[in-house]
Simulated assay, not measured.
Amino acid sequence: MNQYFVQRYNGNVIVRFDDTNHAKESNLYVDNLLIDIKTLGINYEKSYTSDYFQQLIEMAEKLIKQGKAYVDDIGNKLKS
């Protein structure tokens, strides 16, 4: 479906990988997924969530300050 909409509206397919730090993680699965996507004839742009961590932190802090989000620290309490 994504490729259909890309062609119809002259857009881009963005393949985003959720990661903690892609520089330290194995690329085995990422590389194979990208090969499979390319085999289907789909052109894509690749991105990693970790590339946007600073921006995500800033947005989360803004939402917390606006009272539109909160942080639950129950996980830390359970570890003690």
Rank of each mutant, 00 (worst) to 15 (best):
F5T: 08
V6G: 10
V6R: 13
R8Q: 15
N10I: 14
G11D: 14
G11E: 14
V13H: 10
V13F: 09
V13R: 06
I14L: 12
F17S: 06
D18F: 09
T20Y: 03
T20N: 06
T20P: 01
N21W: 01
N21L: 07
A23I: 13
A23G: 08
N27K: 11
V30F: 04
V30A: 10
N32L: 11
N32I: 07
L33C: 12
L34V: 11
I35Q: 14
I35W: 07
T39W: 14
G41F: 10
I42P: 05
N43F: 09
N43D: 15
E45Y: 13
E45L: 12
K46I: 08
Y48I: 08
T49G: 10
T49K: 14
S50E: 09
I57C: 04
I57T: 04
I57G: 02
M59L: 07
M59D: 08
M59G: 04
A60Y: 01
E61D: 12
E61W: 03
K62Q: 06
L63A: 01
L63W: 01
Q66N: 05
Q66W: 00
K68I: 04
A69F: 01
Y70G: 03
V71W: 02
D72W: 04
D73G: 03
N76S: 02
K77D: 08
K77N: 05
K77A: 07
L78N: 04
L78M: 07
K79G: 01
S80D: 09
S80A: 12
S80V: 07
